[in-house]
Design a protein around this nucleic acid. Structure first.
Lengths: 117, 117
DNA sequence: CAAATATACAACCATATGGTTGTACATCCT
DNA sequence: AGGATGTACAACCATATGGTTGTATATTTG
């Protein structure tokens, strides 16, 4: 089985911070959707400087949401769905805490009626 | 059926930003886990000032992850799992984009062999 | 009523963030 | 070789963030 190393608090900070920006979420969506992307081709899609987009990509890379692969003078940027999944799993675990609040009470209520001893 | 209003980009920014801090994720975990919480009781758990925790709670509230309910001089803080679910759904959608990249190719490969006309 | 408690909020500070422009360097193309 | 293209990176700026302390206002309690 494949081991899913859990992320440090610091890595989680970077991961959610990377997702907390419209432009960066948009870039992630493009990449996950399979758009062939160099830093330049990404930059051409947004109303901001090349350097600004470059910084956004660096933030995504630091969060592990994206990888860069040199190819000649270009850098191909690819999405990393596993990191996205780790963030999703953490949220699911937090939700699980919520539902766990009631599971014991549910069990008691679901129990076939039995007089208290 | 219950309608799930989708969030604005701005709301998503606030939502992920709220999650991008260890202390705030910890607060969310406590609340989802059912810990009875006033702002003070939360503040007592962390090595920072009351005002600092108060600000963290305000950020969580602004992101919709938490609600405050006045009760005498106290404010009861409760977790809102629906907002957590909205963030999770967005991540799942991004992951879905990734898997959709291959579905068409998969379909072609899975098709019973048929000579090109 | 007076003291203690819970919260709110303003002012302040250091650092981070998101943007800009400019410069340097590597690679591709004619 | 030399110009054009793609990337990296530094310096700078305005604003946001995460923390502090201090003050004000409600509410509970003795």
């Amino acid at each position: 089985m494949v081991v899913h190393p859990s992320l440090s608090e610091d890595a989680l900070d970077r991961l959610f911070h990377a997702l907390a920006d419209t432009t960066r979420r948009n870039i992630v969506a493009r990449l996950m959707g399979g758009e062939h992307a160099t830093v330049s081709s990404l930059a051409s899609r947004y109303e901001m400087s090349f350097a600004a987009v470059q910084k956004h990509v660096a933030v995504l890379e630091g969060a592990g949401l994206v990888t860069k692969h040199p190819q000649g003078r270009e850098r191909i940027v690819r999405g990393n769905p596993e990191q996205l999944a780790r963030a999703r799993v953490l949220l699911a675990q937090l939700e699980q805490l919520w539902s766990a609040r009631f599971s014991q009470l549910d069990a008691i209520l679901a129990e076939p009626s039995r007089r208290t001893p």
